[in-house]
């Protein structure tokens, strides 16, 4: 781990097939620790597929073949000794539609701790601390500290999405994957969630899939542009938007296709 401490995720020649259809073609990419990396590209380019590879959630759909290698913290997650439970504990995912669980805000936040520990190992004070810490990190504590017993599913959408992010934090994940986390939210809520993402940089590696160029530009430190299952360009966000090195990237971010 010590030779390359800067990369949270490294993929090498990663290809993925859904049946006969090749969704990813030899993708090799290194994603920096503690940064926000945007995944952009037109629909069907494989960006969501790539994202879903990082916690191996693709496999659930069956009929999926993966070749190549994905290392998270320098450990190949396709090795036989990798436990999916441990992997998903350190690689969390946030979805397009906020999906808080139909239990209280408090229980939503400690859900991860509960399922990863024996009942007797969890102390009330420890849980309380975890809830406050996680909710503070997503700027929900002040709004919700008196309504921790309220059902997560009854909150406003923005709060729901923040809660979904907070739910991952007590497990101290290395990576947080976000699949268009703001597409169900209005502009105000989007701004709030973006702000919260900035607050999380440095502590967690965030990979965000987005259709929204402006958002990619606003929130990400680095950008990956994909097309037809291949990685076209991966640079610092400013460089990609100001000075893309590929014609296809330039065409896409200027909206000539999409």
């Amino acid at each position: 781990m010590s030779d390359e401490p800067n990369y949270s995720i490294e993929t090498k020649d990663l290809s993925l097939f859904y049946g006969d259809f090749q969704a990813l073609n030899k993708v090799s990419v290194n994603i920096n620790h503690g940064k926000i990396t945007g995944l952009i590209g037109p629909s069907g380019c494989g960006k969501t597929t790539l994202l879903r590879c990082f916690n191996r959630v693709n496999e659930r759909f069956g009929n999926v073949t993966t070749t190549g290698e994905i290392k998270i913290l320098s450990k190949n997650i396709y090795d036989d000794d990798v436990s999916l439970i441990q992997l998903r504990k350190s690689v969390g995912m946030v979805f397009q539609r906020p999906n808080p669980l139909p239990i209280s805000v408090y229980e939503n936040v400690v859900f991860g701790l509960r399922i990863h520990s024996r009942r007797k190992d969890l102390k009330k004070t420890q849980l309380d601390e975890a809830v406050e810490k996680a909710l503070r990190e997503v700027y929900l504590w002040d709004d919700l500290k008196d309504q921790l017993h309220v059902k997560g599913t009854t909150l406003q959408l923005e709060q729901q999405q923040k809660l979904c992010i907070a739910r991952l934090l007590p497990l101290k994940p290395e990576v947080i994957l976000m699949d268009e986390p703001c597409s169900a939210l209005d502009t105000e809520a989007t701004r709030a969630v973006e702000e919260l993402m900035h607050g999380l940089t440095g502590k967690y590696t965030i990979v965000i899939v987005t259709h929204n160029m402006a958002q990619a530009r606003r929130v990400s430190d680095e950008c990956i542009f994909m097309l037809l299952g291949e990685l076209v360009e991966h640079t610092r966000t400013e460089d990609m938007f100001l000075n893309p090195s590929h014609q296809k990237t330039a065409d896409y971010i200027e909206g000539r296709y999409g």
């Binding site: 669980l101 139909p102 859900f111 991860g112």
Partner: peptide, 27 residues
């Protein structure tokens, strides 16, 4: 019971039984 609840559980590393016990059955 909406699939998204199950996905939410699986994505923090819950086993199927934990998901069923905690979320699916009560609902």
């Amino acid at each position: 019971v909406p699939m998204s609840f199950r996905e939410a559980c699986w994505n923090v590393g819950a086993t199927k039984w934990q998901t069923i016990r905690g979320i699916v059955l009560p609902n």
